[in-house]
């Protein structure tokens, strides 16, 4: 009994909040783009439990995505080549956004495009809506023009950040690809042009071959690798980027538990996204939040900054 009372006291003293680009999240747990939808995820848990939701990629016109198979399981991970199928920004504003707004959580809208003009059209429409932040996906490996050409070249990353910043009032976070030689160069370019934050990492480009059928498992041949098998790569990149830029970082890549989330914070992330774990267990984002609270209680952290400062 006494232990329970102590737990409650600790809980009362805990401050899980974090400010990202001037927006206060009540806790650092968000959903990774492409693994969350208000209707489907909301069927399993109360979305208001999360600090923020990050939506599936939204484009200026509807996108059809890639043919199937789009999913392949790998050792401790998975490949996807969905190809950013989405009904377009107008449909998003009409159908998904009102549902998201019915929850007590911040709304971060992921934006995709094939050209700078595509991105601009979408962010302009979103800028007038009741959203909190835009996450600009310059890192999808699954379609030829899925933004990765912007995310793989510091000059292009700078240009697209500059163009979008010029158009919108809302804060923007650039989502970076790990499929580069030096991710800090891209992060620095985005920061220089006024990005309000970066999120990393998107998926690693991978491939799986069915040796019996003698062909790639995915229709698209290659796909994005995610899940716990990529976490060390993500931790390394968050650690490097933290030491290269001052803007907030949303860290993601294979977070399965509260301790994984703490590891990202310790590497330098301000908030975290849960992606593949939510496909494996629909309620994972809430579970991970609760596990993070337990981790903080057990280790007597009072706030997130103490975790971030803890690395020896």
């Amino acid at each position: 009994m006494i232990k329970n009372i102590n737990d409650k006291l600790y809980h009362a003293e805990l401050d899980l909040s974090v400010s990202i680009a001037g927006v206060t999240l009540k806790n650092p747990v968000t959903t990774a783009s492409g693994t969350f939808s208000a209707r489907e995820s909301g069927a399993f848990y109360d979305i208001s439990e999360l600090g923020a939701v990050i939506t599936k990629g939204v484009s200026d016109v509807p996108w059809d995505g890639n043919p199937t198979p789009r999913i392949a399981e790998t050792y401790g991970g998975m490949l996807n080549s969905v190809g950013l199928q989405n009904p377009g920004v107008e449909d998003f504003i009409k159908h998904e956004l009102p549902l998201l707004k019915s929850y007590n959580t911040k709304v971060i809208v992921n934006v995709v495009g094939k050209t700078i003009n595509d991105y601009c059209k979408t962010v302009e429409k979103l800028d007038d809506e009741a959203i909190d932040i835009m996450e600009i996906n310059i890192s999808c490996p699954n379609i030829k023009e899925g933004g990765i050409s912007f995310g793989a070249d510091p000059k292009m990353a700078a240009e697209i950040t500059r163009e979008i910043k010029r158009l919108v009032k809302k804060p923007i976070i650039m989502k970076l690809t790990p499929n580069v030689t030096d991710i800090t160069e891209i992060a620095k370019a985005a920061e220089y042009e006024g990005a309000d934050g970066v999120s990393l990492i998107n998926t690693l480009l991978g491939m799986k071959i069915d040796v019996h059928r003698k062909k790639p498992v995915l229709w698209n041949k290659t796909g994005g690798l995610s899940g716990p098998s990529i976490k060390p790569v993500a931790i390394r990149m968050v650690y490097q980027v933290r030491r290269a830029v001052n803007i907030p970082i949303i860290g993601l890549g294979g977070i399965m538990t509260g301790e994984d989330a703490a590891e990202f914070l310790m590497a330098g992330a301000d908030a975290v996204s849960v992606g593949t774990a939510a496909l494996v267990d629909p309620t994972a984002p809430v579970r991970i939040k609760n596990e993070l609270i337990a981790f903080m209680q057990q280790n007597e952290y009072k706030n997130l900054q103490q975790i971030r400062d803890a690395l020896a």
Binding site: T35, E40, F44, T68, I71, N80, P282
Partner: peptide, 16 residues
């Protein structure tokens, strides 16, 4: 039938 990821509509892996 289609190869599924999450099975509950979040990943949009299985489409027809």
């Amino acid at each position: 039938e289609e190869r599924m990821g999450c099975g509950y509509g979040a990943c949009v892996g299985c489409v027809c």
